[in-house]
Design a protein around this nucleic acid. Sequence first.
DNA 1: GCAAAAGTGTTGCCGATACACCCATGT
DNA 2: ACATGGGTGTATCGGCAACACTTTTGC
Lengths: 246, 246
Amino acid sequence: MKTDHNKSIESLKELIDSKNLIPNVSVDCTIFGFHDNILKVLLLKYHDLNLYSLPGGFVFIDEDLRAAAERVLYERTHLKGLFLEQFHTFGRVNRTENNVHKTLINNKGLDVPMDHWILQRFITVGYCSLIDFSLADTFPDAFNESCAWFEVNKLPEMAFDHDRIIAEGLNHLRKNIDTQIAASNLLPEKFTMKDLQCLYETILGEKLRRNNFQRKILSTNSLERMEKLYDGSANKAPYLYRFIKN
Amino acid sequence: MKTDHNKSIESLKELIDSKNLIPNVSVDCTIFGFHDNILKVLLLKYHDLNLYSLPGGFVFIDEDLRAAAERVLYERTHLKGLFLEQFHTFGRVNRTENNVHKTLINNKGLDVPMDHWILQRFITVGYCSLIDFSLADTFPDAFNESCAWFEVNKLPEMAFDHDRIIAEGLNHLRKNIDTQIAASNLLPEKFTMKDLQCLYETILGEKLRRNNFQRKILSTNSLERMEKLYDGSANKAPYLYRFIKN
DNA sequence: GCAAAAGTGTTGCCGATACACCCATGT
DNA sequence: ACATGGGTGTATCGGCAACACTTTTGC
């Protein structure tokens, strides 16, 4: 454990001293997780603080902005090729006024110049993703002691303006949910129309009409109907569907 | 003229040396201009180069990101309180690979360290605005020799990825055009329905049906009908309308 | 009266909604 | 048979497109 801790400090120090980062810029990912009809969001807990943040990171000088977001997503989930979209850039001066980095650096006993950009105001580019949280392990980084899923309407106290970023990210997800996104590993290979409807309802946070939903989805011609599912219950067996791959 | 040139160099040098700017970050404004049924976009021409760019600028360390965009808009038009919306952040590494700043600095004979961020890759946040180009004077800056309006489908060669930024900005404008935006100084106080329709058609780049357009706009209850306009032509006089201020 | 442009009416289509009914299945 | 829940039919509504008709105006 001690070595882990030293390693943490080492990598933190390295990060802060790095000349290979774009100063004053970060990316933050609202990684939404769906499973069993619950919508969660992945948050990190800072060491020794009762304060949470979005998975975020800085951008290397030779790295595409989107690639930085992909890297953040990968570092926390070890998953690649996921749905990931930029939705807004947050740049108000006071968004980082309670700069938690300062406390962290002090707590770690690191020697960082007071005029270092990590202690100043910085802007952040918000990205939005969606995965199945039961399929993803999560991996905290040197800044954080834990990496955990929180239901979107039961959020803990957030650092910076991350509560606002989550709200905007969720808004983006809701406006952009479609069968392509739903198709990416959120449901089993074969699933019932009810499964898909529950996914939509959970993301949108509202009930939909069963029959109208079915028609709307089928009219997109993105589903293929398979055999029926007999689960032993005393009712008509639903058809299974799968997404048509393009 | 000589003094102006020296002043230019002075302010350029000041800008580059400034410790008060966020490095590697800029804002670029797609300032669309409407008048006489023509849609233009405001471009700057670089000194001694046959290359154009969007009005852009850097962000002061104590300045809101949006305020930086407002400042850029104000510096080029001397107008305030205009429609202005962020639409996308462009962050690919190679977007600044033909860094025109290098040429400019060489041409000016400025002494800038080769590792200065202005010569490196930087990301830019795109903002979109819309004004009446006949009402706005335009003001070039030290970097540029002229500031001029170009029709959106007759663009000259653009620096960086500014052609893409314009395309995205126009797309944003088209998706967000509404009576609120149209109300902001693009038309005279009183105008005919045809005037408004022409504005929409010019921005959207497509013809609309006269009668359906009228119904659609009136159904928003954002217009107030005034007296008729007699212009001496041999046809029924159209009503004048004005926007209802909230 | 006539041409030109504005105002208004009507019809049909499409998508979304809401309600209803039928069908399959295990107890 | 019957309760349960899935599948499908249909009426309605609102928005929009398309077309037609009427009105106003100066020549």
